[in-house]
Structures are given as C-alpha cells and as structure tokens.
Design a protein around this nucleic acid. Sequence first.
DNA 1: CCATGAACCTGGTCGC
DNA 2: TGCGACCAGGTTCATG
Length: 271
Amino acid sequence: MPELPEVQTVVNHLLPIIKNKRIVSFKLLWRNTLYSKNIAFLSKTIKNKKIVNVFRIGKYIIIELDVNYIAFHLRMTGYLYNCTNIKDNKYIRCYFKFSDSSYLAFQDIRKFGGFYYIENLDIIYKKIGLDPFDSRFNSSWLKKNLKIKKRKIKGLLLDQSFISGLGNIYIDEILWASKIHPNTLSNMLNNKDISYLSKNTKSILKKSINHHGTTIINFTFDNMKTGSYKNELMVYGRNNEKCFRCDNIIIKIKVFGRGTYFCKICQTIRN
DNA sequence: CCATGAACCTGGTCGC
DNA sequence: TGCGACCAGGTTCATG
C-alpha cells in the first residue's frame, strides 16, 4: 500500500498523539510481524519505555523510544494507529498498550508488514538510499548516479537502496509527468529528462502529502480517513482511458512484474 | 551487475 | 451462488 506520502501522512498524524506516551505492555499476535525475531529482548525491555519521537526513514516509520527504536514497515496493507479498543479486529497483528490505557495497534490483512525492535538504526539506514526530500537530491546527483547504472528506469526507481520512498503508483505518475518511458535505460536519459525527473519527483510527492496520500484500496491514516491524491492521478490505474496530455490511450504493461501504466505516444524510449 | 520469478499472505473482483 | 484465475500500494531471496 504505502509509499513515501502515505508513510509521511501516518507519521504526521501519529507524532502528536503518541509522543510522550509510556508503554506498559506488548502483545504479538502473528509471529512474523516481529522482523527482528528478538521477542525475548523485546518482552524484557519494552515496559516503561517512553516514546520521544516519530519520524520517517524511506518507507519506515521510526518510533524513537527513550532507549531503543521500533521501526515499522507497512508493506502492502499495514495500518498503524492509536485506539482505545483492540477487540473485534481479527487483522491486528500486534499492539503496544500505553499507560493511559490506549493502544498503538498494527493491523495488517496480508501479514507482510512488521517491525524491528532495535538498539540503533544501522540496519534501516543500510537498506535505504537517498530520500527525495534530502537537500542532496537534485539533477546533478541524479545525473551522476543514473549514468553509472544501466537499468530500466522504473526498476531502478523501485530500488529502495537507490532512492527511498518511491513505489509503483508514484513512479508511474513521475515518469508520465516527465515524459519518460518506464523501460528507458537509466544511462540513456538526457539532461532534460533528468531535470524533469528531479523536479517532478519532489513536486508530486509534496502534493500527495498535502492530500494525505493516495487511497486505492485500503490505505487509511486516522480512523478510516483516506487520502485524496487518488483524484489527482494522471496515469496510474487509467488503463484504456485517454491520456490527459495527448488523448491517446493509456496502456498497461508489466515491468519488473509490476503493473505499469503509461502513454506510449508521450512517453518514448530514448536510445 | 541486471533481470526474472517465487515467496511471504489475504481478500476482492471478474468470468464462467 | 460457487469456483478458479488473477490482481493488489512491497521487499527479499534464489536462479540464470
């Protein structure tokens, strides 16, 4: 489900609500939800930990405790939220109970999501490439790093160790806005392509954050509130509909096994 | 180094 | 209604 804007939406929403809350207990309801597999360490040390900050690294939601970190990844269907009742929800995979009797619950239909309970953030930073909102992310960084690779641009943008935070929806949107064919090899992009890519990445993500992200299937962030960026999508999911720019038909293909939408009239392969 | 496919899971939708 | 096939916003691992 979530890409950078959706994760940022969850972080923005959770921070003021759970900051300074104190954890009194923890319950794991699906074993694979704990990625770090250190249940004994977790059970022994989680009690009385206080939440001091909530922030984002790539698509990870980092919950900083006074000692140690909780790093959640929502994958496809994860939903992390504060609530007062965890009964009657068979999709809750784990929860932390706070001293005020509310909970931080993690719900996840497909069970792909989960979290690390770790002493430092090394393993997270190791997986994560440059954030699009990092000041180093610009045309010249892209130019340098796209040239030294020779990969299909869509596949490269999906690679979180290269740029972190992009996913299937926003990549299609960014490539459409930049008039770049998803199968273009990264080293074949010209300066103009790269300049558009850089600008559109930042502007599309920023705009989506302002809309609280995109809800296609079941992304919610605050008691079932949904993101409204779905109304702004230019290509994603518009198979067989007219391109908003040139009126030709948007087609769907597979790139890296992912459904990929584009307009083959305005998005051409460079070679 | 790069591409591909499978695996991890469940639910929704579409066609017959 | 039921059943099978296919699809889904992500990541990781094994295999050419």
